[in-house]
Computed example of a mutant assay.
Amino acid sequence: MTLPFTLQQLRILKAIATEKNFTKAAEILYLSQPSLSKQIKTLEKNLDILLINRKGNKISLTENGKVFLQYSERILALCEESCRALIDLKNGDRGNLRVGASQTTGTYLMPQVLALFAQNYPQIGLKVQVNSTRLIAKSILAKEIDIAIVGGEIPNKLKKDLTVEDFVEDKLCLIIANSHFFAKREKIKKFNFIQIFIDFVLK
């Protein structure tokens, strides 16, 4: 279907409605007045309706012209919005980001990170997937998610195909009762810490 108008003709109609003067409308659009008048006549001919009342130096929109102007403004606004959206996509300011997280990270760290991200990039939609570190790594390789923050160790066979960067350090604390035999020690070695779990399992 061939449209009976061009975007330039819609801009011309809008300028005429605003300025109520052919000469001023032509100046705003950097057109000659004869060219502007010709475009309007072509538009009216293609639509087969009268858009503008011409009475000497006074011009006004007909009822048909007023209705068509409303749609013209909406069409022009949508065109501008679509252009801005494409520019945003090109610059990375719009779109969707698929984020993965391991169980603990997804529960305690991601809410703060995602809230800050959403505040700075409101145009980007977020989709979050929480799973084990191994499954999240597999999802990255399968291109099911774009980026992930995990707390567990990534298997070497998966890690070799991924780019992994340290994001934040986590602090683990050992909590014991005052009556525990470790309580009197100033330092506890990793071996001693592991021994606690071995003893617990054996019991």
Rank of each mutant, 00 (worst) to 15 (best):
M110S: 04
M110P: 02
M110F: 03
M110T: 02
P111G: 11
Q112E: 11
Q112H: 15
V113T: 15
V113W: 15
V113G: 05
V113I: 12
L114Y: 00
L114M: 04
L114N: 01
A115Y: 05
A115W: 15
L116M: 05
L116A: 06
L116W: 10
L116G: 09
F117S: 09
F117G: 10
A118G: 02
A118F: 00
Q119P: 12
Q119C: 10
N120F: 06
N120K: 07
Y121K: 07
P122E: 04
P122D: 05
Q123R: 06
I124R: 01
I124C: 03
G125T: 07
G125S: 05
L126P: 02
L126A: 05
L126C: 03
K127Y: 06
V128C: 00
V128P: 00
V128D: 00
Q129S: 14
Q129G: 14
Q129P: 14
Q129M: 11
V130L: 11
V130Q: 14
S132N: 14
S132V: 10
T133K: 14
R134N: 14
R134C: 06
R134V: 08
L135A: 10
L135R: 06
L135Y: 10
L135V: 15
I136K: 04
I136D: 03
A137D: 04
A137F: 08
A137E: 12
A137V: 13
A137C: 05
A137T: 13
K138H: 07
K138P: 10
